[in-house]
Write a protein that binds this DNA or RNA. Structure first.
Lengths: 335, 335
DNA sequence: TGATAAAATGTTAACGTTAACAAAAAATGA
DNA sequence: TCATTTTTTGTTAACGTTAACATTTTATCA
């Protein structure tokens, strides 16, 4: 491999001068710089980032950590996250992706290895990880899940408001008996969406019926089972808010399996607007959550943090959007 | 940060001895080693991989490159790939993920930065990248797409055989007019699946009708449009083989939009068995492609290659599996 | 023109680790 | 017991880069 010393020899300068030219330092003469750059490109020089990192005490690596890669994270969520981050991270940074649950201890998470860390957090259990990162003084940004600490940058969608809007929409459509299939209990998002659901009911002075809330864990099967439970009720709800699209699809299938129809017998709304929501039959009305945008913003911001640019924002809520398709029946004309 | 020299001082030995203890070299006395290890863990020592990499000329990084992260790669494919690789890569390696199309030039892809590279290849255009890696003498393994060079390790699913089986199944069900919606033309997988389709027809001495082949690019919308084109034909096919599940879902929706039914009017099979294939209505009959398994195998093998273990295999075909659900109607009783 | 300031380049050390070689300590054997 | 071998430890250099400081060259101005 060609090093700056090789270039130095050919250019008849010291290796420091080469270093300066390559990093376009201001204290170098134009012609010298030009000559060095030319030789470098001729030799196809590429810097050794290990050496650079060693001396500069920087890793040139951004870590993207998800709660889990393999458990409970939907494909579209993972893909959107990576797409968003990938688009924002410039080529001179390594992008390192792992699940927090891949680690038994966090000893290898330190400033030497990571210039900055993005946590796409889906569970309150991530807290010990976040705390560790904080303690090691690695710049961090937490996405997707609200955290109390106001000195940590935090970007998330307003899930509570999003689900409130969705349930309000059901109410506007004339529904009075509205069920919910909840997400993985330990995930903050599941709690927020439940709160939005409750808020809408309370706002409209609707009674809260315990048996209309059933558990789920964000996967399709739990949606199927949740809906079955609701259908077996003496008086099933006429509309069900599912805490994500995957469960909504499972729920739709449960409805069909019971010989009923969506939306004629049961109306359904989902949450996420994952890629296939528009291709279900009928098209799924859902709350669009801007995962990719959140990830993109997060990556941009961690880069600013890492490069020492002043970043002011501390908590950013990205708006959700209600996407109306065909899975909700209008009982009254209002919606 | 604590270094081996700090440990050395406390243990009253030289830093080399510490290095040896930490890397459990055989030429160190038991008690000495034990003492050093104790101090190290007490101080919460964690090695500086930049220094290590610099002196050992190793990067401790495995690169996972996909044809593209943002264009034409489905969410489930991306997610499965990452899951498989992530599960196999041990904690002491960095996992670096990027799209080949994120690079304008490959100068930063060199042995200093990558101990080994996994290419999850979806397009023949990846060849220049593969060639570059080869030229730099970085251990490489190519997944998912067949390559001619027999000295490159290559793991892939037998798409041609998989699609042949799928189409044969349609034929067994009594279908005679069978259409295909093709995948992105430049992707080898699209070609192989087309070949499987043709092989099945030829095996059964069916005529090949040009107008039954329509283009697509693996996304849902192209599946929708492709099906529309087929439906507008004077005599539409009774069954359509879609080159992936996403397009199959688009196609199903096109059928519904025309007031027809799946599978009563048109039978559909997909390819991939992506997560939601079982939750479409009706459930999608499809060819299961073991993306996660391929990725896992690939990662295991690149690790063996990198650590110098002898690896014999050169080309591995992983079997696909026909998953029969409800999207195909049996015209005859044979299936 | 020559002293002085400014700009450009060079020298040397440092980052934290491993490796080659050197030295010391321990074990062996006559 | 002491020479010899073997085992264990230490010393020094190296990896490729940047940074602090030193030196040389160039520009400025009286």
């Amino acid at each position: 491999m060609v090093t700056i010393k090789d270039i130095a020899k050919l250019a008849n300068v010291s290796h420091t001068t080469v270093s300066r030219a390559l990093n376009n330092s201001p204290l170098i003469k134009g012609p010298t710089k030009k000559k060095i750059l030319e030789i470098a490109s001729q030799l196809n020089y590429s810097p050794n980032y290990n050496a650079k990192s060693l001396v500069m005490q920087k890793s040139h690596t951004i870590g993207l950590f998800l709660t889990s890669i393999s458990n409970g994270t939907s494909a579209s969520f993972l893909a959107d996250t990576i797409k968003g981050v990938n688009a924002a991270i410039s080529q001179e940074y390594n992008l390192f992706i792992r699940g927090i649950d891949d680690y038994e201890d966090y000893s290898s998470i330190n400033p030497q290895r990571f210039d900055g860390i993005i946590v796409m957090s889906q569970s309150i259990q991530d807290h010990s990880f976040i705390y560790h990162v904080l303690q090691k003084k690695i710049p961090i940004i937490v996405l997707n899940r609200e955290i109390e600490e106001d000195y940590i940058m935090n970007i998330l969608s307003d899930d509570k408001e999003g689900s409130r809007q969705a349930v309000q929409y059901l109410i506007d459509c004339g529904h009075k008996d509205i069920g919910i299939i909840e997400g993985t209990p330990s995930f903050k998002s599941a709690q927020m969406r439940k709160e939005g659901y409750l808020t809408a009911l309370i706002d409209n002075h609707f009674p809260i019926q315990q048996e209309y809330s059933v558990n789920g864990n964000y996967d399709m099967e739990s949606g199927y089972k949740g809906m079955e439970k609701l259908l077996l009720l003496g008086k099933p709800p006429t509309a069900v808010f599912c805490s994500n699209d995957d469960m909504a699809i499972g729920a739709m299938n449960a409805v069909y399996a019971h010989g009923l129809s969506v939306p004629d017998d049961i109306s359904i709304v989902g949450f996420d607007d994952s890629g296939f929501a528009q291709y279900t039959t009928p098209g799924l009305t859902t709350v669009k959550r801007p995962v990719e945008q959140i990830s993109y913003l997060g990556a941009k911001n961690i880069l600013s943090l890492v490069t020492g640019k002043e970043v002011t924002l501390e908590k950013v809520y990205v708006n959700t959007e209600l996407i109306i398709r065909k899975s909700v029946k209008s009982i009254e004309k209002r919606c």
